[in-house]
Design a protein around this nucleic acid. Structure first.
Lengths: 173, 173
DNA sequence: TATTGTTATACTCTATAACTATA
DNA sequence: TATAGTTATAGAGTATAACAATA
């Protein structure tokens, strides 16, 4: 079912360009994107599986780890954190309660709007976050086993990819 | 507390004694791997954030989607699914209860060991899984916006990377 | 005795809806 | 009236421990 070698896709594309068949070339490129995405997705699935374990190294749930990561910049309202986590604002109350209970986060009143509470990391929170980020920056074995040339290509291509990711809907807040 | 990074230091030092250039080259390659990993990790975080939305398109929780994906091959015991999901076996009972309640999965008794229950997808389950897998195969905008040359490089490098991922601890079951 | 799956319990994450205090 | 955050409630995911049936 899937044994077809796809290096021949290159030839198809070249032929399509020459004969001006844009539609065929487009399909070939879509197929190419799928082929590139497939192994990437496998790695992502593996990382999704491992992330709870990584967070647990710091006695954090996956969501707590994600939240800590997002709170590393300037103080932000609860609602902003809810946006980052793609969850309802009501959940952030309990989440922040627990982080605050552990002394990692503080609620501060915003002076421009007394409804708003700004979330800041405590010193302890900053320290945990620093170690967490350092740990997350460690590449998995699958990546670090690549050659220097492969790593350079991967880095350059992925940097271009995530540039495009930041562009369309992305307000960094 | 004082001997914390001793083993690592010893390795670096030993290499440095052999050849200072080799140690420096090693650090450079580690740094390169980190640089390649960083944008990859950003994409992974974004996909982790989006996965619940994708699963919800099929009225599945993230874990249910993951389980359905894992049950696409031959019938397997509950314990195997627990392994795939990296969770305790006790959780699989409720998870399978819900999937079975929706008619997507069946429990079957294994004849070789009457303690074991084998999980199989129903026809409805196979259909949902097929559509789910098709949806997951769609590359995100950040990837499909890359050029053909970039896609080819990405595909080839990532294929080599996940080959190495399958090798070390990987029993596919 | 050891293992497979279940049940009981507790905690976290998540959504919806109703509420408060501001604006 | 609308918005930011809270509370109440319900369902799902997760771990631990105790248990039944089977090996």
């Amino acid at each position: 079912m899937k044994g077809m070698s796809r290096t021949q896709g290159d030839r198809v594309e070249a032929r399509a360009r020459k004969s001006g068949e844009a539609a065929e070339s487009l399909r070939a490129e879509e197929e190419l994107a799928r082929e590139a995405w497939a192994p990437l997705f496998e790695l992502i699935q593996e990382q999704m599986r491992q992330f709870p374990v990584l967070a647990a190294e710091f006695e954090l749930s996956p969501v707590q780890a994600h939240a800590l990561r997002m709170l590393g910049y300037e103080p932000q309202p609860m609602s902003a954190l809810a946006g980052h986590l793609s969850c309802d604002a009501s959940n952030v109350t309990g989440l922040v309660d627990r982080l605050e209970g552990r002394g990692l986060v503080e609620r501060r009143n915003a002076e421009h709007d007394r409804r708003v509470k700004l979330l800041c990391l405590t010193e302890a929170g900053q320290e945990v976050r620093r170690r967490l980020m350092e740990r997350m920056a460690e590449p998995p074995a699958a990546i670090s086993a690549l050659s220097s040339a492969e790593l350079r290509m991967l880095r350059d291509v992925m940097r271009r990819a995530v540039e495009k990711l930041g562009a369309p809907g992305g307000k960094p807040d």
